[in-house]
Every structure is written in structure tokens, then in C-alpha cells.
Amino acid sequence: MDVSLFDFQLPEELIAQTPIADRSRARMMVLNRESGAIEHKHFTDLLSYLQAGDVLVLNDSRVRPARLLGIKAETGAQMEVLLLKPLGDDRWEALVKPAKRVKPGTVIHFGEGLLRAVAEATADMPGGWHFQLQYEAENLDHLLEELGEMPLPPYIRERLDDADRYQTVYARQIGSAAAPTAGLHFTPDILQQIEQKGVKIAPLTLHVGLGTFRPVTAGKVEEHTMHAEYYELGEESAAMIQEAQATGGRIIAVGTTSVRTLESVVQQRGKIEPSSGWTDIFIYPGYNFQAVDAMVTNFHLPRSSLLMLISAFASREHVLSAYQAAVEEQYRFFSFGDAMLIL
């Protein structure tokens, strides 16, 4: 399957650069995945599409402020390191800029030496390196809260004044390199109203890697390889989902990360049950969904694995037609953009 089948023209001015003042006032396109029919709503209308007995599945991963600006110890040159994935014993996979200035043994200082990164070897990605971190603080995450910045996607060029706007209100488990952005629209009030309607809320965790959001560079969809990401589905959430499946309730996943986690569990275990581990599941048209009945998502990049996933759920033709309508109606795209509900 040719990757160009998932391309579309997007005016640059529709790429949202800043979050709107009220999270919940984003627009929401509703797409019927069987007929392709669309409705133009607002996110606050989500409640009217949910029913008692449904389960809303949320990814509670929290973005780590892992973008570090430092200096090369040897020369004083400015460097940027983005921590991506822990490898154990304070070793990390990271992206570094400019990568050409790094070699094994290169030391980069952050916060006047409060944190040091020693380059060990290149990683299997452009600009990627494995670093050994050295610090005196008791807790690395607390140190990163002091020294690090939020790793916003490259298409966002505006400064984010409030870092919490790149976190969901229910973010708990720190570990993501990028936000599960479909959840950015929820507020505590909306979540309370959803529960009051008899809809159960089931959190899970998938720590999002940058590879999830990048365009697919292979010529053929089947040639693309996803980076592995860590997930956890706990006993309580698994039980909620099992009960809904047994009683006719729908499983509504918030975000492609929640979709990938649930489908990974079923693929690996044969059914929904408590589980944890690593997944590199790549969902594209032809995939048979076994866990998810509906999803809340944002509008995604052309040629991205996320666009391929929702095209597998609602058909490529319906999705690209809906995206064309979104462009014509001037919806806001990508991380700080508007929402889509696919039923």
C-alpha cells in the first residue's frame, strides 16, 4: 500500500500554534465510520454521544519536561538533548542537536553541572545517541522539573507560557516524550458529567514516544516500523472493560495511544486482561479491531501512522473526505487543534 494514499493538502495557517483559552470549547467533528456522514459540533457536545454502560478509556501518561539546553564541556558550544526512553541504570536514548558535534565520551552540562550527560554510542535514529546521566539529586524527575522544558512538536513554533496546557488534566504517570493530545480537551467538570451519566472512566498508561507522531518515510506502508512504547493496563480498568464488553457497553478510546494499547493487549493476550509490557503495534487499513468501538482523536499529520490508524477504523475514503471538510471549515489541526469523534 503506497504511503502517498494518506497524503492531503493542509494550509499552514490551520496548524494550531497555541491552545484555546478554554480546553473544552474546541470544535469537534463527528464522523460515522459506516456511512461517512459528518456533523460539526463542539467538544462539550461529547456527552450527548455517550451512553450509560459505556467505558471511556484514557491514557494517564504525563509528559516529562525532557528537553534540556546545555553546553558541551569541552568547547562551551550550546547543545540540546531530548530524553526519549530510559534504558536502565540512568542510561537514556535521546535526540541531540547538533548531532555532528557529539562523539563517544562527549560530556554535556546542564544547570551549571547539576546534570551531566555522557555520550556512549549512536542510537538507531537520525540524531539519536545513548547517554549516561550523572547527577547528585535524589530524583531525576524532580531535577528535570527544574532544568527541563516541555518537548513541543516541531510544527509548534509559538512559545507555550503555561506548560500544563500540554498535559491532560488527568495525567498521572510520568514518562511520555509527547502528550496524548486527544485528551487535552477534557476538563474535570466534563469528566464529572460523564461519570454522572453512568459512563465509567478507565485509565491506562502508554508512554508516548516521538516516533508515534512522525510522518512515515517509507514508500510502502508495510515497510514502516514503529518504535516500541511501554504500556500498562491495570486490574480495575481491565475489569471495567470486560464488564462493558459482556453487557453490551461500548469501549470508547480517547486517543490513538489508548487504541493501540487496548488492541495490543488483545493481540498479545487474546482478550482484555491486566497487562504491561512494550508494544510496537502498527495499525493500518486491513486491520481487524477487536477491542475498540469508538474513539476520540485529533486531526493528524499527512502520511502519519496516526492517520493510517484512523483510516483503518473508519476507511481511508471516509477519513480523507472528513479531513477535506475540516480544511474547508477551517478546523484547527494537530496537537493544540480540534477534536474528532469517530462512531
Results as ranks from 00 to 15, higher is better:
M29Y: 03
A119I: 01
P274Y: 02
Q268R: 09
L184K: 06
G209C: 11
G219E: 14
G113V: 04
R64S: 14
R165I: 05
R269A: 11
L233F: 04
S48P: 02
D60K: 08
I20D: 11
L184H: 04
E328Q: 14
L140A: 08
E229P: 00
S305I: 02
H42G: 08
E236F: 03
L143R: 11
R101S: 11
A177Y: 02
G76C: 14
A253D: 04
R116W: 00
S258R: 02
D7W: 11
L152W: 07
Q245A: 12
F8Y: 15
L95E: 05
S61P: 02
T18V: 15
A238L: 03
L301V: 09
Q173S: 12
K72Q: 15
D161A: 15
R165L: 13
A119H: 00
K103G: 06
K220R: 14
F213Y: 12
Q242A: 10
F336A: 04
S305W: 00
A121M: 03
M1W: 05
S61M: 07
G198Y: 13
L69E: 12
T44R: 10
L31R: 00
G113S: 02
A339M: 03
A322F: 07
N32H: 12
F336H: 03
T187F: 07
M79D: 10
G128W: 00
A182W: 01
Q9K: 15
G234V: 00
D90P: 05
E145H: 13
P19V: 11
V102Y: 03
S237P: 00
M79K: 11
I156T: 13
A218I: 10
A179T: 07
P65I: 07
A325W: 00
H40N: 09
G183K: 06
G70D: 12
L307W: 01
M240L: 14
N59P: 05
E12V: 15
A228K: 04
E328W: 05
E223D: 15
A291N: 02
G270T: 05
Q290W: 03
L87K: 05
A314E: 05
H207Y: 11
H224Q: 08
Y170T: 06
Y135T: 09
D280H: 04
L320G: 08
I251T: 09
I71F: 13
Q268K: 13
Q290P: 04
V81L: 14
E136W: 06
R116V: 02
F43D: 01
R260N: 07
H227S: 12
K41A: 12
K103E: 10
L47Q: 13
A52M: 13
F110S: 01
P151A: 11
K197Q: 15
R165T: 13
S305A: 11
V199L: 12
L31M: 09
